[in-house]
Amino acid sequence: MIEVVDVYYEYADGTRALNGVSLRIGKGEIVAIMGENGAGKTTLVKHFNGLLKPTKGTVKINGIDTREKSVAELSKIVGIVFQNPDHQLFADTVEEEIKFSLKNFNFSEDVISSRIKWALKIMELEKYSRKSPYTLSVGERKRLAIASVLAYDPEIIVLDEPTAGQDWIQKEKISEIINLLKHMGKTIVIVTHDIEFVLERVNRIILMANGKIIADGKKREILSNIRILERARLIPPQIPHLSYLLYEKGVIDRRDILFLDELLRELEARL
């Protein structure tokens, strides 16, 4: 469980990145945090594993105040996969990359080797186990960064822009991974601009602008509110956008349509 209460954060250069943020994310939830670059999304999630400590306010993870624990201790509960995998990868081989945090967390050799196998398998990286991370494609490096976090089995997983620069097939793979994590009962926080992806995969959306939360709710409520999406400088997903325009023009009666089949049913009544 993540509890953020009235958090402010100011970087050393005086930039105020968070301006009074409060939220609760319960166990097993899948939440997307969205907003334009500079809205404060990444600053917020860096508070979840204590990489940043609030200038004012409190962040609690499973009831623990992040000020009272080290990043290493919190990382065992909250695994963050950052946007650029290259900032995260440093080992000589793919296998060692995954091994690194497992060793740090003092898992036994048996557990380490089975976890490595498991993580390589679900991320489809087995054939690269002895290769250098730098010989992998960007998409593969991203999957490796996810694998190294999954391997030590944190309860909460934060994915920062998991689909950026990924092709459709890789996005489908990431969707499958998120599904798998959901079935494992993980809490998943996705920081993303990819609104079509969010439409398909997430239940709850938090919109940020200028270091504040400007909306927090069910996806149907948020994604059909074109005005609020514009305030967060997001381009609405195509079907909700089209449905909203058709509603405005009086063609259909519902304004909260998210999916193609829903819209088709509404249109069929008219066409």
């Binding site: 092709d167 079907i239 193609l260």
Partner: peptide
Amino acid sequence: NIVGVPKIVKLYYRLLNKGV
């Protein structure tokens, strides 16, 4: 199924199939 086809393209063809 090879690339992500935008939703309005899919809808356009679904409507076409229904004679619209």
